[in-house]
């Protein structure tokens, strides 16, 4: 009922990064990132290892505390507020979590809770965050599991599932939070090659439904087909960004060119 904005006139900004900087001690990982992510769009972030792409994503839901710049979600700065003197101060964790109520992340390692069944995992946000009554929560969780094709494993425990199945359950769990923005942190990197497809398919369906998605990925095929915008990160800076057709077919930056060359030589003709 809340997703009707993307068709009519201009979509609003979902996530805005302004001069975002992140350091670990002396090591600066993000060196001033400016990025606009529109509601209903799919943004893929690509780049080599150590380029800072995962850190960038993790800054959006404050799993990493950034030092300078801003992360704005629907116009609201995440993690920081102003004290009486107008200085920036870190907000308490519980408050930050409230600000992030419309953002949810899917992890490389799935991070399902092994002591809870598949159904209980998906019910967790419904029961323990939103306080939905049991019967209703169960029904909704089953709907979501059906959506990702995992309803037949509702009573199973996560560790008995394949990686691809676990990741689909993890996506269903994230959806149970009813987020407007979903962050995917290399969702298929921990999967055996033959299991990648089932996860990408679910993600593609989500994109078609108009979910705002930010995806850190090595799957260039997915990035090329599904995304509205591709961002290439190198050494903590945005090296190039634009529509996938432009980035993949006519890359202007030499770094992106060599990145794509390495990638296609490694993945051969299959790509």
């Amino acid at each position: 009922m809340t997703q009707q904005t993307h068709a009519d006139n201009t979509p609003r900004t979902a996530v805005e990064l302004v001069k975002l900087r992140k350091r670990y001690d002396d090591n600066e990982v993000l060196k001033g990132i400016d990025l606009n992510i529109l509601e209903g769009q799919v943004t893929c972030i690509i780049g080599g290892s150590g380029s800072g792409k995962s850190t960038l994503l993790r800054c959006i839901n404050f799993l990493e505390v950034y030092q300078e710049g801003e992360v704005n979600v629907f116009g609201k700065t995440i993690g920081y507020g102003m004290d009486e003197q107008g200085n920036r101060e870190l907000l308490p964790k519980s408050l930050v979590q409230q600000e992030l109520s419309e953002v949810c992340m899917v992890f490389q390692q799935f991070n399902l809770w092994p002591h809870l069944s598949v159904l209980e995992n998906v019910m967790a946000p419904l029961r323990w965050v939103k306080g939905v009554p049991l019967a209703q929560a169960k029904q909704r969780a089953l709907e979501l599991l059906t959506k990702v094709g995992m309803e037949h494993k509702a009573e199973a425990y996560p560790l008995s599932l394949s990686g691809g199945q676990q990741q689909r359950v993890a996506i269903a769990r994230s959806l149970a939070k009813d987020p407007k923005i979903m962050l995917f942190d290399e969702p298929t990197s921990a999967l055996d090659p033959e299991l990648v497809g089932e996860v990408l398919k679910v993600m593609q369906e989500l994109a078609q439904e108009g979910m705002t998605m930010v995806v850190v990925t090595h799957e260039m095929g997915f990035a090329a087909q599904v995304s509205d915008q591709v961002v290439f990160l190198a050494e903590g800076k945005i090296e190039e960004q634009g529509p996938p057709s432009k980035l993949f077919n006519a890359p202007s930056s030499p770094k992106l060119q060599s990145f794509l060359e390495t990638w296609s030589s490694r993945n051969g003709a299959a790509a």
């Binding site: 992030l100 992340m105 809770w113 002591h115």
Partner: peptide, 25 residues
């Protein structure tokens, strides 16, 4: 650590993460 991160992104607070995710395990 990923389990706690998942709890964070789902929206579970400190106490609920402890009660439902960490303590049982």
């Amino acid at each position: 650590r990923g389990q706690n991160e998942a709890a964070w992104t789902i929206g579970l607070g400190w106490w609920k993460t402890l009660r439902y995710i960490q303590m049982p395990q």
